[in-house]
Simulated assay, not measured.
Amino acid sequence: MNRPRLDDRLADLEADGYLIDASQEDANQLYLSGFTGPDPFLTLYADGEVHVLVSGLEYGRATAEATADTVERHADYGYEYGGREARNDMYAEFVRDKGVDSVSMPPRGPVGTADALRDRGIDVAVDTDDRLREVRAVKTDEEIDAIREAQRANEAAMRAAEELIAGADVAGEDAEVGDAEPGVLLHEGEPLTSERVAEEIEVTLLRHGCALDETIVAGGAQAADPHDRGSGPLRANEAIIVDIFPRSKATKYNADMTRTFCVGEPSEALREWYELTGRALDAALDAVEPGATGEDVHAAACEVYEEAGEPTFRTDPETETGFIHSTGHGIGLDVHESPRLANGGEALEPGHVITVEPGLYDPEVGGVRIEDLVVVTEDGHENLTDYPIRFAAE
């Protein structure tokens, strides 16, 4: 955690402290406390110190793991099991015990906790700007190394997926393999499905200390929907989008990468789209530097597509085909966080880790997306992705 940056961003809040009531699933909570508590717990930041309040069940682990100045348990305030009002009394006592009479809470903090503290005489304001999210956007060297490590696992998973796709046979006109139709990819005599490739990805990630709840392996018309996870048999001569966004089980930091593959002969339109998307990626990467805005990077990708006559949201906000999403997003403890590479995107700073992922989509053609992961540096950017860009799966 970058405490000087945190102090700077919270300095103008008219509150004595910053309070979070959430579990580790809330990235702000994980960032501030450093503790992987599965149940909601309190973290208070006041006078440059982090204070954590957990149940007795989690106390031992919290004292060992939390990056906090103090760790206390419910029993320290005469509570362990009781009703809601007694729990809220404990929360108020914990806050006041740190010399705090007013707190700011993130915009997604529990209303019940905020109201309970107000009822007990503690002023609560909502941090509508979500300043902690802004603090998290700029990564320390340690955080960048954690993302880099997750990306190495990501690349191993992408390699496993590509090899599975590249090694597939193609069902011919006289195919008699189950329900396989001509053109369907076959693995060990069975149709190769999106689910089978996703399984290979997940198993590989587990072996590299990472996991993910879901991934994208979408071919043909499914690839024309950027967030279609993909299902069923994959086919030759169609684009197959593989988008993997794993999370390290140890550090909790995410990575993200997309490649598009094809087995066989893609259509002329798909070939043109792939070449165009590679150019859009290069143009967007060239625009990544400190002081440039997320909108600048997005515009660089859009211009490549627009000059080729392809629609984008920038020129046609109602288009359902073409480049129909932003150029990228920040990544860290959340797989989607600040900054945004889109219209209105903010200025880039050294330490921002962002994805750059242009793409084109049309159900009549399919979909193509290529995504790299980069960190903004003092004089430009460093690409954290070390995986080849190629259409023909190898």
Rank of each mutant, 00 (worst) to 15 (best):
A236Y: 01
W273Y: 05
R207M: 15
S194D: 00
T204Y: 03
N254C: 15
C210I: 12
E202R: 12
L212D: 01
G230Y: 02
D243I: 04
C210D: 09
R247M: 10
K249F: 13
S231M: 06
A255Q: 03
H208A: 09
G264D: 09
A221S: 11
A284T: 07
E195L: 04
T277V: 08
R279Q: 13
N254M: 15
S231F: 09
I201F: 02
A250P: 09
R279D: 07
Y253R: 05
K249A: 15
N237S: 15
D243M: 06
P226D: 02
Y253P: 01
P233N: 11
T204K: 00
P246L: 00
P266R: 01
P233V: 05
R271E: 04
K252G: 06
T258M: 07
I244L: 09
H227M: 14
A223K: 01
D225E: 14
A223D: 01
L205M: 12
D243Y: 08
M257Y: 11
A221L: 08
R235K: 11
E200C: 10
D282T: 15
N237C: 10
E200Q: 15
S231Q: 11
A211Q: 10
D256M: 13
L281S: 02
R271F: 05
D213C: 05
A224Q: 01
V203R: 10
D256Q: 13
L276N: 00
A224E: 03
A211D: 15
T204A: 04
E214S: 06
L276K: 00
A284S: 12
H208M: 07
G230A: 00
A236L: 06
E200G: 13
V197E: 01
D286W: 10
L285K: 13
V203D: 08
G220R: 08
V203I: 10
Y274R: 05
S267H: 11
E272H: 15
G232D: 09
A284M: 12
A269P: 03
D286P: 07
C262I: 05
R196V: 03
V242M: 14
A198V: 04
E272D: 11
M257T: 05
T204V: 15
E202Q: 14
R207A: 12
N237Y: 04
A255V: 03
E238T: 11
A284P: 03
E214Q: 14
L212V: 11
D243V: 02
T193R: 12
H208R: 04
S231G: 07
G230F: 00
V217T: 02
V217K: 00
W273D: 03
E275T: 13
C262S: 08
G220F: 03
P246Q: 02
E200S: 14
G220S: 13
L212C: 10
E214C: 05
D213M: 13
A236G: 08
R229P: 05
E200R: 11
K252L: 11
G264A: 10
F245V: 07
T258L: 08
V217Q: 02
T258N: 12
H208I: 08
R235C: 06
R229Y: 14
T277H: 02
M257F: 15
L212Q: 08
A198N: 00
A221Y: 02
E265V: 08
